[in-house]
Write a protein that binds this DNA or RNA. Structure first.
Length: 289
DNA sequence: GCGTCCAGGTCTACC
DNA sequence: GGTAGACCTGGACGC
């Protein structure tokens, strides 16, 4: 476990913890997650921070060593435990306005076991309230995921979504006008035409990766730039109405400014600007962890 | 309870 | 390259 890892801050780093197949109990500090393994088995995992806040404990009911290895791998992926943040914390220490971050273990953003799940969820956050995002993702998991013994379900596979009609996605999943985008993305991934999982380890430049993301129907600047953060690239801000409003309050007494003004303020932070921007906008979340 | 309006990103057509 | 309108839903609001 990296010394600069903080379980709670990673879990509540953004809204993913509240979307199934994740669930989080703030009182007990337990993060639940349903995982599907390569052999087709489905397991329910419980994670908590243990006695020391920098350690996570896995409670997995599986006796198969192969399964345990795969479960650990998937959970490490979600918590970004294999991502090195040494350089980030060293660079941040050079900026006095971010001294409050020192020693907090902030920086890791929770993600799904697969890039496909992250991408679908990102698509489901576009042009709607968080309440509607929750409805769409919950419907996807409930109606198209595979059921675990405890009644919870996995996130649906690309082929499970691709096998449904646009009308089903529109009406039953409540994806609305996003339905054709969701269907096209799932079909391309299921057919092998688009390998989004490769993006997590690609040597492509961030600019080229951004181009590929933007080529997906329904993924605009906001969704693509925030997806980049879940791929380990932090040099874009990923502006939406919520962070803009937050920024206006924090730095301009609520007065609106141009996006270029916001971007100019964070340019000096180089490749970490997107992550520092997000951490600053959500500082109150981190301080409760 | 019903109707209207608005917010929320992205796409497409148009200038 | 910039802009306007459409897309769909939930919530707020007025009646």
């Amino acid at each position: 476990m990296p010394q600069d890892f903080n379980f709670t801050r990673t879990v509540v780093s953004h809204g993913w913890y509240a979307l199934p197949p994740f669930s989080y109990d703030e009182k007990t500090g337990v993060l639940e997650r349903v995982l599907e393994l390569q052999d087709g088995s489905i397991v329910n995992c419980s994670l908590n921070s243990g006695r020391r806040s920098v350690q996570a404990r896995l409670e997995v009911k599986s006796n198969e060593s192969d399964q345990t290895t795969e479960i650990r791998k998937q959970l490490r992926t979600c918590l970004r435990l294999d991502e090195d943040f040494t350089e980030f914390h060293r660079d941040v220490s050079l900026h006095k306005e971010f001294r409050w971050l020192q020693g907090t273990g902030s920086g890791r953003l929770l993600r799904a076991p697969t890039a496909f799940e992250d991408l679908v969820k990102m698509l489901c956050t576009t042009n709607c309230t968080w309440a509607l995002t929750t409805v769409i993702v919950t419907n996807l998991v409930r109606l198209l995921g595979r059921r675990a013994p405890n009644g919870n379900s996995t996130f649906p596979s690309p082929s499970a979504i691709a096998s449904k009609s646009e009308t089903f996605l529109r009406r039953k999943i409540k994806a609305g006008y996003r339905a054709p985008y969701l269907l096209e993305l799932s079909r391309r991934v299921a057919s092998g035409d688009l390998n989004v999982e490769a993006w997590r380890a690609t040597s492509l430049s961030t600019a080229d990766l951004l181009k590929q993301l933007r080529a997906i129907k329904g993924i605009g600047p906001y969704a693509a730039e925030n997806m980049l953060k879940l791929l380990g690239r932090y040099d874009h801000l990923g502006l939406d109405s919520w962070v803009r409003a937050r920024y206006y309050r924090l730095h301009h007494a609520g007065r609106k400014v141009k996006d270029t003004t916001i971007q100019a303020r964070y340019n000096k932070y180089g490749k970490w600007r997107g992550l520092l921007f997000w951490l600053e906008m959500t500082r109150s979340w981190h301080e409760r962890g």
